[in-house]
Amino acid sequence: MPEELSPGCARPTGDPVGEIAAHQTAFEQERKEESPVILIGKKAPDFTAPGYHNGKFINVKLSEYLGKWVLLCFYPGDFTFV
């Protein structure tokens, strides 16, 4: 499902996509504080993000997982202790 990425010298990163992204960009343009838009019982904000899986660099889009249960876990950092 996720497409394979061919890494260059840049460090690719994740980005919200769709309405949320437009919403966030509008916020940035207005130089306002970005506010979280997640709400329980509402749609999870879509995003794309590069990643590493099974020896390959890939690009993942959350909305490609529609039809499946997804557990999305954030954590502070690689090589940290907990």
Partner: peptide
């Protein structure tokens, strides 16, 4: 996955601006 700018984490409300990292958010 990588969210080097913390932009996805901000939308999910779990990015800690002061620490510059994402907290343990589980969705």
């Amino acid at each position: 996955l990588s969210d080097a700018g913390g932009r996805v984490g901000k939308v999910y409300g779990i990015y800690d601006e002061d620490l510059g990292v994402e907290t343990r958010g589980r969705f």
